[in-house]
Design a protein around this nucleic acid. Sequence first.
RNA 1: GCUCCCAUCGUCUAGCGGUUAGGACGCGGCCCUCUCAAGGCUGAAACACGAGUUCGAUUCUCGUUGGGAGCGCCA
Length: 468
Amino acid sequence: MSENTKPVLRFAPSPTGMLHIGGARTALFNWLYARHTGGTFLLRIEDTDRERSTPQAVQAILNGMSWMGLTWDGDVVYQFARADRHREVAAKLLAEGKAYRCYATAEELTAMREEQKAKGLPMRYDGRWRDRKPGPEQDGKPFVVRLKARQSGETIVHDKVLGDVRFENSQLDDMVLLRSDGNPTYMLAVVVDDADMGVTHVIRGADHLNNAARQLQIIEQMGWTVPVYGHLPLINGPDGAKLSKRHGALAVEAYRDMGYLPETMRNYLLRLGWSHGDDEIIPTKQAIAWFNLESIGKSAARMDYKKLDNLNGHYIRETSDAALVAEVTAWLEREKRVLSMTARQRLEQAMPGLKERAKTLVELVQGAEFLFTDGPRTLDEAAARLLPPEGRKTLAAALPALEATDWTAPALEAAARAFAQAHGLKLGAVAQPLRAALTGRASSPPLFEMLALLGREESLNRLGAYTA
RNA sequence: GCUCCCAUCGUCUAGCGGUUAGGACGCGGCCCUCUCAAGGCUGAAACACGAGUUCGAUUCUCGUUGGGAGCGCCA
């Protein structure tokens, strides 16, 4: 990369499953760096494995990226479509004696590995065809093309995250470039595509660190420019073990369905492995301004759902009332529910009090439920505890005092306070039964505001249902 | 087994030779308060271990231990 060219980043998932949290973070870091530097962020689908790649997975990745707000530049590149180019590079390597044909069968190689394992030897291709010329008996037999890797010296990966990582070349074996069906392997394809696409920075999961040394050898043989590498430590589950389907390896869309905001996910994932002093709340705009490769941590991190919740609560409170009303409405529509005009107006008015109390959009919808329909409420467990016989008696006794006043929050509150004082009760002793009857829950936005919002008729209808 | 990576409160992390080891989430207490939140104050909570280097190590080096990744005609 020359001094005045902008960085070119890429996210290169294989479409064999959903876009999970680890992939999303890799994509985020690439995206942030591209946006920070004014560079380019490319998306390449690594679908050379024809067996396992599916169109559904491609769509899931695209959807996940879109939801996360990680917009890529230009068209999506499908790796398999470039197979001819990969074969061309393999042919060149072959012609130059930098690669060779290996006729070993899969069974033969399996037997070789088992033997190595049994003897406690390192498991790697032993180079049996490296210097062997195929004889007549190989005519028409299938073969793979392997790179003739250097066997002495060392290969150093200059990694922006981990520093210099050295590998003895004697530890690296001759990897397969072209399969026996003539299709390229990932090892060949990534290198060729990155070179052709002008990728300057390869930021990917640390599970690829070992591959980097091998890929470096292909780059070297082809005389291409070595990209800047950055291998991100992996994300573990809350228990520190590998991320599995059981806990965090959920598709990013699962987080959407649990009611997390994209902004939350970006902030949370950013802080998982990257820091900027003591800063915790880092909106995306700020993240783009601050992001760098130097501040990426070296150790693996665990998912912490409590912290995710806390952050999401923060961003929900930051979101405008109007936007949240739209979110709730959309949420209900997905459940085939439509709000009445009245319900929608109530939702708009109550939103400031509602959003203060929700950590997720799911909680926001639940907290607003009492506004959506008219009539007496069904009490949840906590609310029911507030309306035992004595509670109902208090409620019945207080009702006339409320009925006698103007139906405004201040007037209602004054009336309730006066009633409580007259009966030697704390305000809470009066307010809680009222809240339970009005909302069906033990907690809600400020009671008197909710009474005013629902109006005299509707409120009295609900309260009256629990006076006996 | 071999190769590689990692190691500060329970968790995410700041720290880049000398700090009362800081912040955040979570947890406890107090305040506020009609509930729940939010907010404010506050408390408990960490340098894995052992050798070096150094006047001095959380910080540098090596080892140990413990985690993790890779070792496919998967990516």
